[in-house]
């Protein structure tokens, strides 16, 4: 699983984290990572799975690219 974060979350070392096999959906991933980095679950932090924004919980798999997107500044 390829984990990414941007903006004020970009300093988090997400990509070195081992994700347990029982973390099979995006809500479970948020809960798992949120124990170490509560800011990932702050209001306004969106989730993109394979570059598509998702709402609610969706299934995830080891080959997915998952990005945490804090509130965007615009261009």
């Amino acid at each position: 699983m390829h984990l990414l974060s941007f903006g004020k979350l970009s300093h988090l070392a997400l990509d070195g984290v081992d994700i347990p096999a029982d973390v099979a959906d995006s809500d479970a991933l948020r809960r798992f990572l949120g124990k170490r980095w509560p800011e990932l679950n702050a209001p306004g932090v969106l989730l993109a799975v394979n570059q598509t924004l998702v709402r609610g919980s969706v299934p995830i798999s080891p080959g997915d690219e998952i990005a945490f997107l804090p509130p965007m500044s615009g261009g």
């Binding site: 903006g7 004020k8 997107l69 965007m72 500044s73 615009g74 261009g75």
Partner: peptide, 8 residues
């Protein structure tokens, strides 16, 4: 672009 583009 000013309000919704994905930049930080």
């Amino acid at each position: 672009l000013k309000t919704h583009a994905p930049f930080w």
